[in-house]
Nucleic acid binder design. Structure first.
Lengths: 155, 155
DNA sequence: CCGATGACGGTATATTATAACATCGGGTGA
DNA sequence: TCACCCGATGTTATAATATACCGTCATCGG
């Protein structure tokens, strides 16, 4: 269910191809921001990206980062984690999809899952209500299996 | 599926009872903030609450509002809409539950639904992954049935 | 060449949220 | 009664997140 993360180079190559196919430009900044987001261990905030961008760009300002992030979001190359105000690389950008996120508050780790069960039930709810979803936000905040084992046994 | 919203007085009464049962204090500020959130047409931001609070409190500061909101969230009397940075009264505070929200970007309306299908599929995903959810965030951003009809027919 | 468009730089500021510390008030036990 | 604790509140300042706005530049199609 959990999707394996591709290597950075792989991701960048896919991104390049996708943008070409779609006739949109993966410019230097956009590419750099994508790289920073995907290279990160976990989710990264916009200002964290901004900081890391300082190493390769002269004096970047917030709009620079946000513009790139907006583009990458539109292209489905990254996701925004609303509950964390942070961004994370998409595990499988090649096809459009609705993802769900398991966010561990202990270790900070995030798993992107793509559960057909969840997608189906969401779709059914939409059919019942006539609501048309543009962007689904499904984020489960809690404790991952690993951290549950590591946790203090009693207390 | 959509839950009818109770009247303001009803809500306040229920809140009072619940807090008594739980041995927590629904103080004047907390009650006032709950009232403001529930009286609002749709979701309200913290600073919007702050503004409205000025009418009944001398010179309220952000922490006043956020503290009250935190309390109300803990007690399940309101919900936070992460994707809007806004708060909304809980439609059915009497029992613990996981809600989902349909957020219309056209009219700004929000429906709270409680779909067993969605809950079940989320639970299944948790069982598969061993993840333990403390707080689920399920927000569908899009267009409500009403606004789809109202929308420009072609374009 | 011209005009349109999209990307970018840069400044300022809006918006959302919390840190830190002082105070107050009500209950509890000595 | 008094000392004490603790939860709630007041107050100031600031952190963190996000966008408005405007000018410039490059590219592309006509």
């Amino acid at each position: 269910m959990t999707v394996k993360r591709s290597s950075l180079n792989e991701i960048l190559k896919i991104a390049e191809i996708l943008c070409n196919q779609r006739g949109v430009r993966l410019t230097v900044q956009r590419r750099k921001v994508l790289e920073l987001v995907c290279a990160a261990e976990g989710p990264v905030g916009a200002y964290e990206i901004l900081d890391r961008l300082r190493e390769s760009v002269d004096n970047p300002a917030p709009p620079t980062v946000y513009r790139a992030l907006d583009f990458l979001l539109e292209q489905g190359l990254i996701h925004k984690l609303e509950s964390l105000h942070a961004f994370i690389g998409c595990s499988h950008p090649s096809h459009p999809h609705a993802s769900q996120f398991l966010i561990c508050s202990d270790c900070g780790g995030v798993s992107e899952i793509e559960s057909s069960g969840i997608s189906n039930s969401l779709r059914q709810a939409q059919e019942r209500t006539g609501f048309k979803t543009k962007r689904p936000v499904v984020e489960l905040l809690g404790t991952c299996a690993q951290c549950q084992r590591t946790a203090v046994p009693k207390e």
